[in-house]
Computed example of a mutant assay.
Amino acid sequence: MSEPPAPRIRTARPADDEALGLIDRLTWSRLHAVAPEPQPPFSPFFSERHAPEDCLVAEVDGRVAGYVLLGFPTPLACNAHVRQIQGLAVANEARGRGAGRALIRAAVEEARRRGARRVTLRVLAHNTPARKLYESEGFVVEGVLPEEFLLGGEYVDDVLMGRSL
């Protein structure tokens, strides 16, 4: 039996807004989300904070299957050499097909292309699958903010990870 085709990664387009918003809502979980569960009316996926050019999209079988948001951790010029992964989601039906890994690799390459020296991210301590994936792609724990979030009645650490390019 042959391997399924690798996900295709591309820069997002404004027309992806609805599909990406739907993925965001369908994959919402306390495992990774600190914001409340989205409720109607839903906000657009793209905003002043994240434009389509800040988002890479994974396509599986010709359909939008996931995304990664790449931004600046701060607006300061002295921090402009760092990019931060500010969101990653893969549709449930596309999980296990390499989309998450492909998105992380593409984000790292895009950060490098844009002149970054480092890529950072934040991940909840209890999100073991995401942490293992990031670690397998060269990210290391650089700090922990103990009990940073109260989620579902439990305190959860915020783990800061990064890697040099």
Results as ranks from 00 to 15, higher is better:
85 I>M: 07
109 E>I: 03
14 P>I: 02
32 H>F: 13
116 A>I: 12
25 R>W: 12
130 A>V: 00
165 L>S: 05
130 A>T: 00
44 P>V: 08
116 A>Y: 10
77 A>N: 02
32 H>L: 14
32 H>R: 10
112 R>C: 13
95 R>F: 00
149 F>C: 04
57 V>K: 10
89 A>Q: 10
5 P>E: 09
110 E>L: 11
21 G>V: 10
141 V>C: 13
122 R>Q: 11
149 F>L: 03
23 I>N: 03
149 F>D: 08
114 R>Q: 15
53 E>Q: 10
2 S>G: 11
28 W>V: 06
114 R>G: 14
84 Q>N: 09
87 G>A: 04
91 A>D: 15
106 A>Q: 11
102 A>R: 08
156 V>E: 00
100 G>D: 12
153 G>D: 00
30 R>H: 07
59 E>Q: 01
152 G>F: 04
34 V>E: 02
123 V>S: 01
68 V>G: 10
32 H>Y: 10
128 T>D: 14
89 A>L: 03
135 E>W: 00
49 R>F: 02
65 A>N: 08
147 E>S: 14
139 F>D: 05
5 P>V: 13
58 A>T: 00
113 R>Q: 03
126 H>C: 09
3 E>M: 05
60 V>W: 05
41 P>W: 01
36 P>W: 06
90 V>A: 03
30 R>Y: 05
91 A>S: 15
11 T>W: 08
88 L>Q: 13
109 E>N: 13
132 K>D: 13
109 E>K: 04
57 V>C: 10
116 A>M: 07
103 L>N: 04
35 A>L: 14
44 P>I: 13
141 V>P: 01
136 S>T: 05
36 P>G: 01
53 E>S: 13
118 R>K: 14
94 A>V: 05
158 D>C: 11
44 P>S: 02
54 D>S: 04
162 G>T: 02
54 D>K: 13
143 G>W: 00
84 Q>G: 03
4 P>I: 11
88 L>N: 15
24 D>G: 14
87 G>K: 03
60 V>H: 09
24 D>S: 15
155 Y>H: 11
66 G>Y: 00
60 V>L: 09
115 G>L: 15
25 R>G: 09
30 R>T: 11
65 A>K: 03
95 R>K: 05
142 E>D: 09
106 A>N: 09
142 E>H: 06
107 A>S: 14
72 F>V: 10
23 I>K: 05
97 R>H: 01
158 D>V: 09
98 G>N: 06
164 S>G: 11
74 T>N: 14
143 G>E: 00
148 E>F: 07
62 G>L: 01
49 R>K: 06
93 E>L: 12
72 F>Q: 15
58 A>E: 08
62 G>W: 01
150 L>K: 14
145 L>Q: 07
63 R>V: 11
43 S>R: 04
71 G>V: 07
103 L>G: 03
18 E>K: 09
44 P>T: 14
7 P>K: 09
54 D>Q: 14
126 H>I: 14
17 D>N: 08
118 R>L: 12
130 A>I: 02
154 E>N: 13
142 E>L: 12
152 G>Y: 00
23 I>M: 12
46 F>T: 01
39 Q>N: 02
102 A>M: 05
55 C>V: 15
50 H>E: 05
107 A>Q: 14
98 G>I: 01
42 F>A: 13
